[in-house]
């Protein structure tokens, strides 16, 4: 910040200057690649620009166009479905964690193997589920055929496709929540559990009134990563359907990429406007998280 005055004082107050030296390289990188680009995107969203020729200032025309774009509403609607259904991974992760929170032989291996889906890249998860759903020979397709006599091509059905992709996304996300809760359960105070048990608490009541309150830090992180994960969904949509059929599985992140960098044309300004909308939605959640973390930090002091 005020590097010149600091360096004058540096011999007298070495400690006032030192943190900035440690911070400089990381801050510079973060500034150039993360902070400044956010504002640049905001700026670009007011231009008509193909990425090569001169950009033309068009004010809020990109945003006005979004309001009339059916693809935008499809994406927005799908993002909301993602967000709501993705939240299932929090209770589902807790259930699996409770199931695995035992000390029998080999349980460690079981825990690792249940966690497995999270370690694999989403591209691979997408391919695995594409195969799982594949019409004619996919495992799930065959199972449905066996039960109902009629297979369903989930990824080719406009009404089912988003749910099919979300199911693929839930698989690693549940694993993530599970591992957070397993760690949380390790730290649950056993004397409180025993005391509650003596008072006759058990089963759901015990879970709800004694265990879950103690798992609050794990729940907070699980919700944060799940919200962020749901709004960031790009890989699965891209791999499994490329937004199809007929654009019905688009989400904002994919719609943005499609407009700015694909065969649909290089509409950087329009893409940036979509990104700004996505960012605005995320800001609501991010500021909530930051506010809570900020309060905790202040509380520590």
């Amino acid at each position: 910040m005020s590097a010149s005055t600091d360096s004058l004082n540096s011999r007298r107050r070495p400690r006032a200057f030192a943190p900035w030296l440690f911070l400089a390289p990381g801050m510079a990188m973060f500034l150039f690649y993360v902070i400044i680009p956010i504002f640049q995107s905001l700026w670009v969203s007011f231009y008509d620009w193909d990425g090569l020729s001169d950009a033309k200032w068009i004010g809020i025309a990109n945003y006005l166009e979004l309001l009339d774009d059916d693809a935008f509403y499809t994406s927005l609607k799908n993002n909301i479905i993602w967000l709501v259904l993705y939240m299932l991974s929090v209770p589902a992760g807790l259930m699996i964690a409770l199931f695995l929170n035992q000390t029998v032989r080999g349980i460690r291996i079981y825990k690792s193997l249940f966690f497995f889906p999270f370690v694999i890249s989403q591209v691979v998860v997408g391919l695995i589920f594409s195969w799982f759903y594949a019409p004619g020979f996919g495992l799930l397709y065959k199972l449905i055929e066996l039960v109902t006599g009629q297979g369903v091509a989930i990824l080719a059905d406009e009404n089912l496709v988003t749910y099919g992709i979300i199911a693929a996304g839930l698989w690693p996300q549940i694993a993530y929540c599970m591992i957070l809760y397993l760690t949380g359960l390790n730290a649950v105070a056993s004397d409180q559990i025993e005391a509650a048990r003596l008072d006759g608490a058990k089963g759901w009541r015990m879970l709800w009134y004694v265990v879950i309150p103690q798992l609050r830090p794990a729940t907070f992180i699980a919700i944060v990563v799940t919200v962020i994960g749901a709004l960031r969904s790009f890989d699965l949509v891209s791999i499994m359907t490329s937004g199809g059929p007929f654009g019905s599985s688009r989400v904002l992140s994919y719609f943005m990429y499609e407009q700015a960098l694909s065969e649909y044309g290089y509409r950087m300004g329009y893409g940036a406007a979509i990104a700004v909308v996505l960012f605005a939605i995320m800001i609501i959640f991010i500021s909530g998280f930051i506010w809570k973390m900020w309060r905790d930090e202040k509380g520590v002091r």
Partner: peptide, 13 residues
């Protein structure tokens, strides 16, 4: 906060 930002807002720049 920067760590939570969506990739798309950084993409063009």
């Amino acid at each position: 906060a920067g760590n939570f930002v969506p990739s798309q807002i950084l993409m063009v720049p």
